[in-house]
């Protein structure tokens, strides 16, 4: 399973996303990390070009609602039907709201790395 991890928006906090990338590679996944400041258009293009199976966004600046909305719109526009997951500094009370926007999963602040890895393993097994 090929996973695209990306940092949308202007937020430069990339420690978490890199730690997760390491952990997913350890768990046997094929991981592409986009680097910082990617626009929804760039992220969707990267996903299509690299034929990834899932997109993971890391957002820490509080812009999760705006960005998730824009990415799902861009995915629809490009008829990209793969799961989207969102993590980072996401307040627990926003999870429900974000889930309504379309992601397969939202990992709020304080989620353990191994829980995220387990989620991807389950996703892979149920494919």
């Amino acid at each position: 399973m090929k996973i695209l991890l990306s940092k949308p928006g202007l937020d430069g906090h990339d420690v978490g996303v890199k730690v997760l990338a390491h952990a997913l590679i350890e768990a046997g996944f094929d991981v592409i990390y986009s680097g910082l400041r990617k626009s929804p258009e760039e992220i969707v293009k990267l996903a299509i070009d690299n034929q990834v199976d899932v997109i993971g966004l890391s957002i820490l600046s509080g812009t999760h609602e705006i960005i998730t909305t824009r990415i799902t719109e861009e995915m629809k526009k490009n008829k990209l039907q793969i799961p989207l997951v969102v993590g980072g500094n996401i307040p627990a009370q926003d999870v429900e709201l974000l889930m309504k926007l379309g992601p397969k999963a939202v990992f709020p602040t304080g989620t353990r790395v191994d829980n995220v890895v387990s989620f991807f393993i389950e996703m892979k097994n149920s494919k």
């Binding site: 928006g9 202007l10 626009s39």
Partner: peptide
């Protein structure tokens, strides 16, 4: 805020949603 830190003006589309946030 992040747009100022990244050298983007408030009316830049990339600044959308980030103006005055941090």
């Amino acid at each position: 805020d992040l747009p100022t830190q990244c050298g983007l003006d408030s009316d830049d589309p990339r600044a959308f949603g980030e103006i005055g946030r941090v």
